[in-house]
């Protein structure tokens, strides 16, 4: 084996080892890499009620009720719903059917008291008239549900 070949194998081996180590670390950290939980996770993962968490999902159609500066709405992942209350300024993209990530705690009544609400959008980009034409022709696929 020449020295060049030895260095080549050394680099390949090093990269493989590093890749494997990174993959292991990322799987081990798993949940820690997640930016938010879904309402379903909140039920199934036994997240302690005192913990501040971020919950992400869609703002359920027809659930938004404004009460002065306070907004009540429901975050849904299409399998589970979470009643949410928030007081403050909402991002421009906040609307029914759109993605949302809220940070806060679940109170004694099972209502999620959000202290911060961020909007999350999907990867679709199109002009307004195209979106309307799609809706009219019935080819509209709706907002993609969050994973």
């Amino acid at each position: 084996m020449t020295r060049k070949q030895r260095r080549l194998y050394f680099v390949i081996l090093g990269m493989l080892a590093l890749g494997a180590a990174t993959a292991l670390v990322l799987t081990a950290v798993g949940d820690g890499m997640v930016y938010f939980y879904t309402p379903r996770d909140l039920r199934t993962r036994h997240i302690s009620p005192d913990r501040r968490v971020r919950i992400g999902g869609l703002v359920k159609q027809g659930s938004v009720v404004r009460d002065g500066k306070t907004v009540h709405f429901v975050i849904t992942d299409l399998t589970a719903d979470l009643k949410t209350t928030y007081t403050g300024v909402l991002p421009d993209l906040f609307r029914e059917g759109q993605g949302v990530v809220a940070e806060g705690k679940v109170d004694g009544n099972g209502v999620f008291q959000a202290s911060e609400v961020l909007a999350k959008h999907d990867e679709k980009y199109m002009p307004k008239d195209v979106a309307e034409a799609l809706k009219k022709s019935g080819h509209w696929q709706g907002e993609t549900p969050q994973k």
């Binding site: 890499m33 993209l93 906040f94 909007a119």
Partner: peptide, 12 residues
């Protein structure tokens, strides 16, 4: 900032 409502988020 205008769309999500934040300048920065510590997501992946």
């Amino acid at each position: 900032r205008p769309m999500w409502g934040t300048w920065w988020a510590w997501d992946a």
